[in-house]
Simulated assay, not measured.
Amino acid sequence: MAPSSDIGPGIELRHLISFLAIAEELHFGRAAARLHLAQPSLSQHLQRLERSVGVELVARNSHEVRLTPAGEAFRERAQDIVARVRRAAQAARAAAAGRAGTVRVGYNFPAGQRVLPAALATLNARHPEIDLEMSEMRTGPQLAALGEGRLDVAMVYGRPLAADLRSRHLLRVPLVAVVGLRHPWAARERVPFVELAGESCILFNRAQSSAMYDAIFSAAQTSGIRLTVAEEVDDPHATAIIAAIKPVVGFASALRGRMADGATGGPRTKTVRLYDPVPILDLYAVWRAQPGPLVEAFLSCLPASSEVTI
């Protein structure tokens, strides 16, 4: 049995749609053609609606068609009702197609700055029924959460090689050095990587971000130097605090470094470009094989691959 189209005592959705067409066209012939109805049927819809409401909504004579004051007042409410019904139908179709629900997304700082804003805007425009649950984490914790089913998509440094994971390149990001304002490098715009041979460095446990860790040590190997690791700190903000007060060198993505340089009220640091070589990180979206329609919808909204310049 088909569901009733009644939306109130004696009021049917099709009667509201017919009334709104008349209200917009102010011409019965054009309104009927727009709705692919015979003109007598359109007139009948209006008559039934007016009987249900109990007042005249449209006045017409041989010269004009116009809304009565009651019709003007009714029009806005009718538009809202029809729009709500249409949105409800869209939500139902989205749910039936697996396009309504929540996608759990992990991300790091560069993804939050360069990828997620555009992806969210596109997702909201294309799939307003899909919500995102977002968590900022480093690469290691993200991949662990993805493997345990606590995340649907991870935005991480490095491309995982696991057979049950899929990935897509999003962003190429240079690494920079982070030093306090009293450090000798603070007066310099860029420094060759080889000069790190004479510096004490702050690093982090490799499990936190293996791609970033390896990029730093690969650049050291290319430069023919050994890094001196004075401290190991897993929190990027804590790294900046230590660099601000001690004569050590930390590392950050160019995007995080720029943000720290412009910040007020936090640790006072300066970012310095590294070169010869420039340590580079590649950011990927990573998800499990056979992701399902919700994740596929989110992935389709990710922006094209890009590169951060320094």
Rank of each mutant, 00 (worst) to 15 (best):
S4P: 02
D6L: 15
G8R: 12
G10C: 11
I11H: 05
E12I: 09
E12M: 13
L13P: 03
E24R: 15
F28N: 08
L37Q: 07
A38D: 15
Q39T: 12
S43R: 14
S43E: 11
L46K: 00
L46S: 04
A59M: 10
A59D: 14
S62D: 11
T68S: 04
R77L: 14
V82P: 00
A83R: 11
A94N: 15
G98Q: 09
A100H: 03
V103Y: 09
Q113C: 06
L116E: 01
A121W: 10
R126G: 04
I130V: 07
D131Q: 14
G147R: 12
D164M: 11
L165K: 05
L165I: 12
R166A: 14
R168V: 12
R168P: 07
P184R: 07
W185T: 03
W185P: 01
V191W: 00
E195A: 05
G198N: 12
E199T: 03
S200K: 08
M212W: 00
V229D: 00
A238S: 08
A240F: 12
A244N: 04
K246S: 05
A252E: 13
A260G: 09
T264G: 14
D276H: 09
A285L: 06
A285I: 04
A285P: 03
V286I: 10
C301Q: 10
E307P: 08
